[in-house]
C-alpha cells in the first residue's frame, strides 16, 4: 500500500471539493473492501476523503411512504431497522446473508453498493485483468471461473458483483441518491451497476467524484411480500454461488406486481425483467413460475465450469416465488 493523504470532510459539499482537488483520491466509507484492496495493491489512492462522519447516517420516513436510508448507515443497522424488516424484508435478509457480524458493523450502505468483484484475477495484481488494468486480458474466462458470470458477460470480463444487498435493492425498485459537483441525481438501483461490455473497469454508473448519499426504498414495494435466498459453499460467511431477491403481489388470483433480481450471475444484480413481464397478469402457478424463470435464464451463456449456476438460480427463484405466493395459491 502506498502512502496517501487523508482528509475528513465536514459536509458532502466539502467532500466533493476535497476529492476534486486531489487527483487520485478515493472516498472512504466503512473501508471493508477499499482497505482490503489497498493492501492488495489493487486500489492505490493518492488521498482518501473520509465520509464516515458526514451526516449521512439518518433514516427518514418520506411523506409518500418511502424510506430514505443514509449512505453511512451501517449494514447491520440497516438490516435491523424495524421499518426495513417489516416492510422490505428481502433487504434485511439480503444484508444478513452477507459477510459477517463484524463486517456488517463497519460496512456502509453506500460502500456496499460500490464494493468490487471478488474475482481472484482482479484481486491479484500479478495477473491480467481488464477490470483492474484495461487491455491486460482476462485470466478468468479460460481460467478458474466456477464463481463467475453466466449472464451478460463480455469477451473482456466475466466477473460478478458480490453484493447481496444490491440484489435486494434492485428487485425492490430502490433508488440510489447521488451528489456531485454538478448537483444531485437519482439512479434506479437496478440500473446503478453496469454490464462489463468493453469497459469492465466501470462497475457502476457513478460519475467521477460523485458520492452516494443514500438509498430510497419506494412505497411501491413497501409491505409487499418479499424475500431473499442465497446458496453458498459454507453455511455462513461466504459469497453467493447464486441468489435471488423477489417481491410479488398477487391480486384477484393473478400476479399484479413482480420484482425479481438474481445475484452472483452477472456483473450487476440481474433484474429479471423478462420473467417479471411473463408473470404479471398470470396466475401464480408452478407452470407460470417455471415458464417465467426459464424465459429469463434462456439468455444464460455459462462458461466451461459454471453451468451449475443456471439450474441453481432457477431453483432458488422458483422456491422464493412459491413461498411468497403460498397464501394466494391455497
Amino acid at each position: 500500500m502506498k502512502t496517501f493523504d487523508y482528509v475528513r470532510a465536514a459536509s458532502v459539499e466539502e467532500a466533493a471539493e476535497a476529492y476534486a482537488a486531489r487527483p487520485g483520491a478515493r472516498y472512504l466509507g466503512g473501508g471493508t473492501n477499499l482497505v482490503d484492496l489497498m493492501k492488495l495493491g489493487v486500489e492505490r489512492p493518492a488521498a482518501l476523503v473520509d465520509l464516515t462522519r458526514l451526516p449521512l447516517d439518518a433514516v427518514e420516513e418520506l411523506p409518500d411512504g418511502s424510506l430514505r436510508v443514509g449512505a453511512m448507515v451501517r449494514n447491520s443497522d440497516l438490516a435491523a431497522l424495524p421499518a426495513v424488516r417489516d416492510r422490505w424484508p428481502a433487504l434485511s435478509q439480503a444484508v444478513l446473508a452477507g459477510a459477517s457480524g463484524q463486517l456488517r458493523n463497519a460496512a456502509t450502505t453506500g460502500g456496499n453498493l460500490l464494493q468490487r468483484t471478488r474475482c481472484p484475477y482482479f484481486q491479484d495484481v500479478t495477473k491480467p485483468c481488464n477490470k483492474r488494468e484495461p487491455g491486460s486480458g482476462c485470466g478468468a474466462r479460460e481460467g478458474v471461473h466456477r464463481d463467475h458470470a453466466v449472464l451478460g458477460h463480455s469477451a473482456q470480463c466475466v466477473a460478478t458483483h458480490p453484493s447481496d444487498m444490491a440484489v435486494a435493492l434492485a428487485a425492490l425498485d430502490a433508488r440510489v441518491e447521488l451528489y456531485g459537483v454538478e448537483g444531485t441525481r437519482e439512479v434506479a438501483a437496478a440500473d446503478f451497476h453496469r454490464l462489463p461490455g468493453d469497459r469492465p473497469d466501470l462497475d457502476t454508473e457513478i460519475r467521477p467524484g460523485e458520492i452516494v448519499t443514500g438509498v430510497v426504498l419506494p412505497a411501491s414495494t413497501a409491505g409487499r411480500p418479499s424475500a431473499y435466498r442465497k446458496a453458498r459453499d459454507r453455511a455462513s460467511y461466504a459469497f453467493a454461488l447464486a441468489s435471488v431477491a423477489a417481491v410479488v403481489r398477487v391480486e384477484s388470483g393473478v400476479v399484479a406486481q413482480a420484482g425479481i433480481a438474481f445475484g452472483a450471475l452477472a456483473h450487476r444484480p440481474w433484474r429479471a425483467r423478462r420473467a417479471e413481464g411473463a408473470l404479471v397478469g398470470a396466475a401464480p402457478t408452478d407452470d407460470a413460475f417455471e415458464h417465467a424463470v426459464d424465459l429469463e435464464l434462456a439468455a444464460a451463456e455459462p462458461l466451461r465450469d459454471n453451468a451449475y449456476k443456471v439450474p441453481l438460480a432457477r431453483a432458488l427463484a422458483l422456491d422464493v416465488l412459491t413461498r411468497l405466493t403460498a397464501s394466494a395459491r391455497t
Binding site: 481472484p120 481460467g143 459454507r234 460467511y237
Partner: peptide, 24 residues
C-alpha cells in the same frame, strides 16, 4: 484449484478457501 495457466492455487485466502465456519 491449481490454475493451469498461472500455476498457483486460486483459492489462496480465507475468503475463497472455505474452512468450516461456526454455522457449518
Amino acid at each position: 484449484t491449481m490454475d493451469a495457466a498461472f500455476g498457483d492455487f486460486t483459492e489462496c485466502d480465507l475468503a475463497s478457501y472455505h474452512v468450516p465456519a461456526h454455522a457449518d
